[in-house]
């Protein structure tokens, strides 16, 4: 898999979400004044390249440093290219992206929040409890999580928590982080129309028409 683009309109979080969700293996490079390359193995970070001065012998320290750099990327080109899955040897580092995504989300700016539209309806994912037990999650983040029920829109969630958390931007940032890390997702909808009746299933209708023509 290969894709490239710019930040904006995307954000670092969007790119990390794609890599995490699809468990990608490959190389992600950001180009702005500096170049930063991260290597992923099945959706986890295994390596990051830093400039000679900044480099440490401990790969974990290097990755931690590059997470700090990732937080600051607000304008850049990026390029991702897949490679074959790496063997998990005992010495290699494999940091899960969930907690990194949450950490970066705390540094998101207002103009990066386009993805969290007023009309978006989130719900908790099946594994959310297990996921948050592995993350350093704040009390405010828990508060937001608790109010998500698969029916409320982003707008309703911010209305409900506005007085408590005192900061609408913060609520949206938290929602963005929870979404990108896979703790919440877009709520599934129960379809209202009766799909058994083929006549009113428009998609099947189009198909039949195309088959016949």
């Amino acid at each position: 898999m290969e894709f490239e683009g710019t930040i904006p309109p995307l954000t670092v979080l969007d790119i990390l979400q794609i890599i995490r969700e699809n468990k990608l293996t490959g190389e992600l490079t950001f180009y702005n004044s500096q170049k930063l390359t991260l290597i992923f193995n099945k959706g986890k970070i295994t390596y990051s390249s830093l400039s000679e001065e900044e480099k440490n012998i401990d790969p974990i320290v290097n990755i931690k440093k590059s997470i700090q750099l990732l937080k600051l990327i607000k304008n850049a080109k990026f390029y991702f290219k897949s490679s074959k899955d790496l063997d998990n040897n005992r010495n290699s580092v494999n940091l899960p992206l969930e907690s990194i995504i949450i950490e970066i989300s705390r540094n998101i700016e207002l103009r990066e929040l386009t993805k969290i539209s007023d009309e978006f309806i989130p719900e908790k994912t099946k594994n959310y409890k297990k996921m948050i037990s592995n993350i350093n999650i704040t009390l405010d983040e828990i508060k937001v999580l608790n109010i998500i029920n698969g029916k409320r829109t982003v707008k309703e969630i911010t209305e409900l928590l506005k007085h408590d958390l005192n900061d609408e931007l913060k609520i949206r940032k938290i929602l963005y982080g929870l979404l990108a890390s896979g703790i919440i997702k877009r709520a599934e909808r129960k379809l209202k129309i009766d799909l058994k009746s083929i006549a009113i299933d428009p998609i099947k209708g189009i198909i039949r028409r195309l088959k016949g023509s």
Binding site: S117, E119, L195
Partner: peptide, 10 residues
């Protein structure tokens, strides 16, 4: 998001 929150259709 606009359509999603308004109509429950395929």
């Amino acid at each position: 998001d606009f359509f999603y929150s308004r109509v429950k259709i395929p």
